[in-house]
Amino acid sequence: MDGIWESFWIGLTDSEVEGNWTWVDGSPLNSRSDGCFWLEGQPDNSKARSASGEDCVTILTRGAEDLNIWNDDVCILAYKSICEKPAGTGPSSSVCG
């Protein structure tokens, strides 16, 4: 991954209401603490790749750095996902968005 940006879905979307960001469990984005991770100029709901715009969020990485940079993107793109797993449980109980 050195020098190459990769994107990972993080389970955040505004597909229900544009600009109203919610996590896959339905909880709202805490804009005061979570909203500080947006890449400059994002979210922008660009319609360059899809007429419906960008309704899902990725975290951008480059090697082991830049782990807290978010970008809104087209939901149908094939990126890897980051999953949340409750503490102390086995791999079969993970919840992915």
Rank of each mutant, 00 (worst) to 15 (best):
8 F>D: 02
21 W>M: 04
61 T>D: 00
77 L>F: 13
46 S>N: 13
61 T>M: 12
51 A>K: 12
37 F>K: 15
89 T>Y: 08
82 I>W: 08
32 R>C: 06
65 E>C: 07
7 S>W: 02
3 G>M: 05
44 D>F: 08
32 R>L: 12
80 K>G: 09
66 D>A: 06
84 E>R: 15
92 S>A: 14
19 G>E: 06
28 P>I: 05
21 W>D: 00
19 G>L: 04
70 W>Y: 15
35 G>V: 08
92 S>G: 09
95 V>T: 13
68 N>R: 12
3 G>K: 12
31 S>N: 13
64 A>N: 10
43 P>W: 02
64 A>Q: 08
78 A>C: 00
63 G>N: 06
94 S>H: 04
68 N>G: 03
31 S>I: 11
88 G>T: 01
41 G>N: 09
23 W>K: 06
44 D>I: 08
90 G>M: 01
74 V>N: 09
40 E>V: 09
1 M>T: 10
52 S>A: 15
10 I>N: 01
65 E>Y: 10
2 D>W: 07
69 I>M: 09
38 W>R: 03
55 D>V: 00
41 G>Q: 07
93 S>Q: 13
4 I>C: 05
33 S>F: 05
16 E>H: 08
64 A>K: 11
84 E>V: 13
96 C>S: 07
71 N>D: 07
69 I>G: 01
11 G>D: 02
94 S>P: 00
51 A>I: 08
88 G>R: 06
48 A>N: 07
7 S>I: 00
20 N>Y: 06
73 D>C: 03
44 D>K: 04
75 C>A: 12
20 N>V: 14
36 C>S: 13
82 I>G: 03
1 M>N: 05
26 G>W: 07
89 T>C: 04
18 E>K: 14
10 I>S: 00
62 R>D: 05
19 G>V: 08
38 W>A: 04
58 T>F: 00
40 E>H: 10
93 S>I: 00
87 A>M: 06
47 K>Q: 15
9 W>V: 02
53 G>V: 02
78 A>P: 11
62 R>G: 02
66 D>G: 15
76 I>K: 12
95 V>C: 08
69 I>V: 15
93 S>A: 14
20 N>L: 06
86 P>M: 05
27 S>F: 01
95 V>K: 14
